[in-house]
Design a protein around this nucleic acid. Sequence first.
DNA 1: TCAAGACATCGACAAATGTCAATGTCAGTG
DNA 2: CACTGACATTGACATTTGTCGATGTCTTGA
Lengths: 94, 94
Amino acid sequence: MSEDTASSLAAQFKAIADPNRLRMVSIISASENAEACVCDITEPLNLGQSTVSHHLKILVDAGVLTREKRGVWAYYSLVPGALDSLAGALTGRP
Amino acid sequence: MSEDTASSLAAQFKAIADPNRLRMVSIISASENAEACVCDITEPLNLGQSTVSHHLKILVDAGVLTREKRGVWAYYSLVPGALDSLAGALTGRP
DNA sequence: TCAAGACATCGACAAATGTCAATGTCAGTG
DNA sequence: CACTGACATTGACATTTGTCGATGTCTTGA
């Protein structure tokens, strides 16, 4: 595996290698329409609003989530196929 | 997802969320008999011996690799199903 | 028994990470 | 316009992480 491939893959795994971020992804995928706003996540995880916003940005930057602003709220949802692509890198099966 | 589940999963993902450790896993799985010793890994990754040993320990502690000492050498190999289990946690398919 | 080699462990360090409080930005409402 | 509420951004901090050099442990061979 090339150095670049490894770095890129590691960056994506690093994004989900955090308990709170894993739970965020879980909450979002289990939500209505598979999307959630910051306020939906702050309470169940018992984290400050700025911390949640920070984690969500990391997941967006890694290509795991997308952000869509509607009015005052920012809705986060899963990027289709992103997690499956990561899983495929582990199994070696595309 | 429970807090404990998230922490446990995150710990495993954290173990592979590093470029050099990903390449180590790649080197091992591509090696003869799917096993490699420290000296097989030091050169291609251009890392110090103690650093390689340190990374391999992290992967062993996470349940990704096993260590078997034969004579002077320590052979590392993949734990069967470990990576597939992690991949399954991402896809939701067991 | 001694020396050499393969690996593990320790101590130290800079860099990255997770968290929070404070502040900034922007849309909706009166 | 002023105000409120939902997020984002910034600054600060303690903790964790990746790396190396030095040292320790253990096996093999002379």
